[in-house]
Design a protein around this nucleic acid. Sequence first.
DNA 1: CTCTAATCTTTCCATTGGAAATATTTTTGC
DNA 2: GCAAAAATATTTCCAATGGAAAGATTAGAG
Lengths: 200, 200
Amino acid sequence: MPAEKRKKYHHGDLRNALIEAGMGIIETEGLAELSLRKIAAKVGVSHTAPKNHFGSMRGLMTAIGAEGFRRFATEMRAGLTGTSGRVKKLEAAVEGYIRFARKHPALFQIMFSPEYCDFKDEEVSEAARASYRVLEEISEGLDWDKADLDHAQLRTEIMLWSFAHGYATLLNNGQINFRDDGTPAFDVLDVIPKFGYREM
Amino acid sequence: MPAEKRKKYHHGDLRNALIEAGMGIIETEGLAELSLRKIAAKVGVSHTAPKNHFGSMRGLMTAIGAEGFRRFATEMRAGLTGTSGRVKKLEAAVEGYIRFARKHPALFQIMFSPEYCDFKDEEVSEAARASYRVLEEISEGLDWDKADLDHAQLRTEIMLWSFAHGYATLLNNGQINFRDDGTPAFDVLDVIPKFGYREM
DNA sequence: CTCTAATCTTTCCATTGGAAATATTTTTGC
DNA sequence: GCAAAAATATTTCCAATGGAAAGATTAGAG
């Protein structure tokens, strides 16, 4: 039997293969269709093999979430390059946030659901922090209140983050009304420049 | 055997009993502990009995979500009575939104997750609309732009809603940092009055 | 080359939501 | 009243899921 066709007992790169398989399933079939056994079958291993690499299903989904956060940061930064001006950058980042959530709803849900994604995991917390750093950078120096600089930036960050996250979530859950053409009956860019911040 | 002790074949008010039992479980044990069989056992019926009243587990959770939305509207309105002034009312409503989410995280999650709660259900959509009406009322006439009155109110509503929803969700998911004393390192009231709206 | 650790499989199990057939009670129609 | 029909509930069965346990296979260290 030719060596390249004979199935090896050891996969070689099972960890990454499982993550990729899981990503593929949630992108094409949605989160509801994701299961440990389905992922394992897609890679061609038994459904207990993942345990060696992730411990449990939540461990695997945590790894998927970590990869999600890395792509998330990339997506937000992608909109920033080529954009000049603080407010424009801010708008671009928020748009990137929402665009990612809408393009990858299942992944986005995993990333932000503690029942799926364990934030105590180092890989996740590091990747999530890297995403948050984008928000920090664009929020720097943007606030309303000169008097309280300590909390000024935090306020801006949390406000922008909460707004973007809430809007994305409500869109993904179908709770914001849509026009007949399928677009949301609301343009994010209409509201972002109105938040009342100013350059300091 | 005395009639009041003999278990009747027909429960009499099984539908409401199941909803209440489900509510009890998610409040005391959390969403992860909720199961059809557990609810049925708590009421003292077989696990297939709920099917007659709700069709499926999702149907039962949809009914729980509907009841959640009714309590949600009550909670938001409770903060409004006794508060005067448009902006104060607005703050009170947003606070009510977040307070409810934090007090009943599992219920809140069910209410806003389409995999649990079916928004095409009439009972839900009516109750959800009643909640949204609170937001509409306080948003009336509050916007930044006189020129586009058509979209002005919608903008205010969606902005407030997105912010409140995102902030509540991020808090519940443990993604916003907390101080040592357990309170969030951020006060919602710090940001609400800064949104840049004005009375028109 | 051998022994150990890592990796993977097979088998088994408890839990879950649901389908189907059956039993019991209530309601309806006459 | 009373039989038929509808509603309600039970029992039994099933497929799917994640995980535990024990054993097989391979890779790597010494």
